[in-house]
Design a binder for these strands. Structure first.
Length: 645
RNA sequence: GCGCCCGUAGCUCAGCUGGAUAGAGCGUCUGACUACGAAUCAGAAGGUCGUAGGUUCGAAUCCUGCCGGGCGUACCA
């Protein structure tokens, strides 16, 4: 449809530009609310009426003869107060849609796009908040790749930060464990650290004198080559592996893991610091509360100072982030060294290191960068962009996108279900923030386990004859589908108050509903093959037959057929719209609505039992088309497609 | 205080840069499986779109005030 609309827009513009003051950008083509009104609607007579001080309806009537006939359009009507409605030539449109399945009319616009997502502190297990981040980032990546963009996925690892130091402190001071004793821990390590981190946090709260030792650990971790560093390094590497495994369960993966330790040791910050000083992007505060700090000013609030380097000379987190952002755009004149971290299915995930390596893949040097990070960090992200602006990297600042979304919080009810005790004050709140510090949260693997267990029970019920492996694999796909759809269905601005019942649902507006729809279509094709020997390869000849005799369908079937096909044809527009707005809930809703329309159609029109060959062929082509679109939509959302369920 | 965001059906949410009669899911109530798989479908009930103004051919959507809620605003990350 996207292509067809572009064609119409250009054609109509060409036909009218000499007579009317009309810009091609204003020539919007929308859809009618009802099929009987037509398929596409032009609203420009309203805008034009304002300019020419004429009645919109009269203008519409005046314009129609000038733009007809249009290729692919059966007839044109004026409607309502001044709409121009187009009725498409259905057979022609349908067959062109059928021929273009699998191809995309979208095209790339960037040299290279870098997406940074997940970014979990490597000191504890991943939780539901991280899942939202990863699902959004991964879906963006999939959609951009479909659009034809060159995409690189990075997952930044803060392996020298306070949070890792906390857990190192826990092992060394609270548990008095040596590195080899830590290595011997057999339990799920990220879970072990989750609990330990919470213990450390409360210990430090009641024993503030221990902060001295913690600071010492932090410093030593940064320095390297000492027991504290060895311990912290072991913790972070082992936790990263756990995170990658968790994300791998839902089909999320990465190309490169840049580490803060490398940023430090390769002196990225020093380089960025001298650039910032040189261009006067930051200045040394001579007096006031921030005396002795290097500060930056935001363009739109010049009275406010943001500290980049503290008076003790230590660079803040956001300072390091500026350096990293510069590197991502290839503006730093420095690079990481790279080594393989893990290999899976032949794909290598690379990690940064400060020591020179033989192999050197190329990362970074993006022309556009998306940072997937929740809304609470909007201010810091703004400072990072300000850094680029101050250095006069204006186009990069423009293409430095904070992909911002609201957090996932917990309802007091779900906290109770998890066995946490909550205070009366907390009980009254609508929601509570997930807190790693307090150990308050739903762990990603726990949620996935629950989903898989429930899905397995459903599969057992419906398909007891399947092999154990196939049952498990199917349950896993259903669990992934449920989770990923759940994380995408809400708009970015919507704070998700996590509820187990809702998240564990497989009915209604859920991932499994979409999967079930595809399974049903597959099942029809399977039966066509079994009963009639009609194979997938037999679809093509149906396609190439000259005519699709839609008039053979009953009137009501024509209406239902067209409603379904026209809706499906909006797919690429939806993908593009989702990318532009970063609202993948659009794609999710579109897929759900399309499934709903298909399921309604399915109940009304039988394929296998239809005796009229022509009608049967049309129906086969219809469900084939819907399946192609749905499969593509699911794959862009990372929702797996089970054969049976 | 300042900045940003949110208030739409009993509950959870859609509603794109203003467009034709405000939509889904869940829940409630009525129906439909000797099957193209009921993880589904059909139907019913349910809304002064927080509130008061403004902008215009047209406002849930844009602007302003007010009410209610959230987040941010660290020499933390």
């Amino acid at each position: 449809m996207l292509e067809f609309k572009d064609y119409l827009r250009e054609k109509i513009h060409k036909l009218l530009e000499k007579k009317y003051p009309i810009d091609i950008m204003e020539l919007e083509i929308s859809y009618t609310p009802q099929q009987k009104m037509g398929d596409l609607a032009l609203t420009f007579p309203f805008q034009l009426a304002k300019k020419l001080k004429k009645e919109p309806r009269k203008l519409a009537l005046e314009i129609i003869p000038l733009i007809s006939p249009l290729e692919g359009v059966e007839r044109i009507e004026a409607a309502g107060p001044g709409y121009i409605n187009l009725f498409l030539e259905r057979e022609k449109f349908f067959s062109s849609q059928l021929r273009s399945t699998g191809k995309t009319s979208l095209s790339p616009e960037e040299e290279k796009i870098i997406i940074e997502h997940t970014n979990i502190n490597p000191n504890k297990a991943a939780h539901i908040g991280h899942l939202r981040n990863a699902c959004l980032g991964d879906t963006l990546g999939r959609c951009l790749k479909y659009k034809g963009e060159n995409v690189e996925i990075q997952n930044y690892i803060d392996d020298t930060g306070v949070q890792v130091a906390d857990v190192a402190f826990g092992f060394m001071e609270l548990e008095k464990k040596t590195l080899s004793q830590i290595k011997e821990i057999k339990e799920k390590f990220d879970y072990y650290c989750w609990d330990l981190y919470a213990r450390v946090s409360s210990y430090l709260e009641s024993n503030p004198q221990a902060e001295t030792r913690k600071s010492e650990i932090l410093k030593k971790i940064e320095q390297g080559e000492n027991p504290e560093h060895e311990t912290a390094n072991h913790i972070s590497r082992r936790i990263i592996k756990a995170h990658l495994k968790t994300m791998g369960r839902i089909g999320v993966d990465y190309d490169f893991l840049p580490c803060e330790s490398s940023v430090l040791h390769l002196k990225f910050w020093e380089k960025a610091f001298s650039l910032l000083k040189e261009k006067k992007a930051i200045s040394l505060a001579k007096d006031g509360v921030n005396k002795g700090c290097w500060v930056m000013y935001l363009e739109d609030e010049p009275e406010k100072e943001k500290i980049i380097v503290r008076s003790d000379g230590i660079v803040t987190y956001v300072g390091k982030d500026i350096a990293y952002q510069l590197w991502k755009f290839g503006l730093l004149e420095e690079d990481f060294y790279y080594e393989p971290f893990i290999k899976e299915d032949g794909k290598i995930v690379w990690i940064s290191t400060a020591t020179p390596q033989k192999e050197s893949p190329s990362f970074g040097k993006g022309s556009k960068v998306y940072n997937v990070i929740d809304r609470r960090q909007a201010y810091l992200q703004k400072i990072v962009v300000q850094g680029l602006k101050s250095l006069k990297y204006l186009s990069q600042a423009e293409k430095s996108i904070h992909f911002s979304y609201e957090m996932v919080a917990l309802s007091p009810k779900s906290l109770k279900e998890l066995g946490f005790s909550i205070t009366e004050e907390e009980e009254k709140k609508d929601f509570l923030e997930v807190s790693g510090r307090k150990g308050l949260g739903v762990k990603a693997d726990d949620l996935l386990d629950m989903l898989e267990k429930k899905a397995l029970a459903e599969v057992e019920k419906r398909n007891p004859e399947l092999s154990e492996n196939l049952k498990k694999e199917t349950a896993h796909k259903i669990a992934t589908g449920a989770l990923r759809y759940f994380m995408l269905k809400f708009a970015l601005n919507s704070l998700i108050v996590f509820d187990f019942e809702e998240a564990l649902s497989f009915e209604g507006e859920t991932g499994p509903y979409l999967q079930y729809t595809v399974v049903r279509i597959n099942s029809i094709f399977r039966k066509l093959a079994e009963r009639e020997g009609f194979e997938e390869k037999d679809i093509k000849p149906l396609l190439s037959s000259k005519e699709i005799p839609l008039q053979k369908l009953s009137e009501s079937e024509q209406v239902d057929f067209w409603d379904l096909v026209l809706y499906a044809s909006k797919f690429e527009e939806e993908v593009l719209h989702s990318i532009r707005s970063l609202e993948f809930s659009h794609l999710a809703k579109f897929s759900f609505n399309l499934s709903q329309k298909f399921n309604a159609y399915y109940h009304l029109y039988s394929i296998l039992a239809e005796e009229n060959k022509e009608i049967k062929s049309i129906r086969i082509l219809t469900i084939h088309y819907i399946r192609e679109v749905l499969k593509r939509a699911l794959s862009l959302m990372g929702i797996p497609q089970p054969e049976l369920m």
